[in-house]
Amino acid sequence: MTSMLKILLKNGTGRYATRLYPAEAREPFAKNRADLSFDPGCCRLCKTCSRKCPTGAIEVDKENRTWKRDVFSCVFCGDCIEACPKSCLSFVARPPLPQKHHQQAVVYATVPERSKK
């Protein structure tokens, strides 16, 4: 009995084990997989990412030059990041803010035309 009491006394007098979130938030770890960033500038619309994605979260439309990712389907596995031949995708350590509507949770980007050489 006394052994637990000792631990409890130490807890009671020591530092808090938790933080007063959100007043006091911890910086995310550098390698965190909290969000996925997409750079439309370098994308070639090759569809590799959408083929590799295990959840089918990415949709690439070649005709309309759009790239779409459903945030709710994405499981942050990183398969698309490894697959992209142009390294357009990367993880972001800071989590995105909560969204009110499902539509807002789709990352939608139009890929700019590239001048042909």
């Binding site: 770890f29 390698k31 965190n32 997989r33 499981v75 942050f76 596995c77 993880f91």
Partner: peptide, 15 residues
Amino acid sequence: LEQTTGNRVIISVNV
């Protein structure tokens, strides 16, 4: 786990 792999539970490191 989070520090070394980026995720807390499903760490997705095995390929």
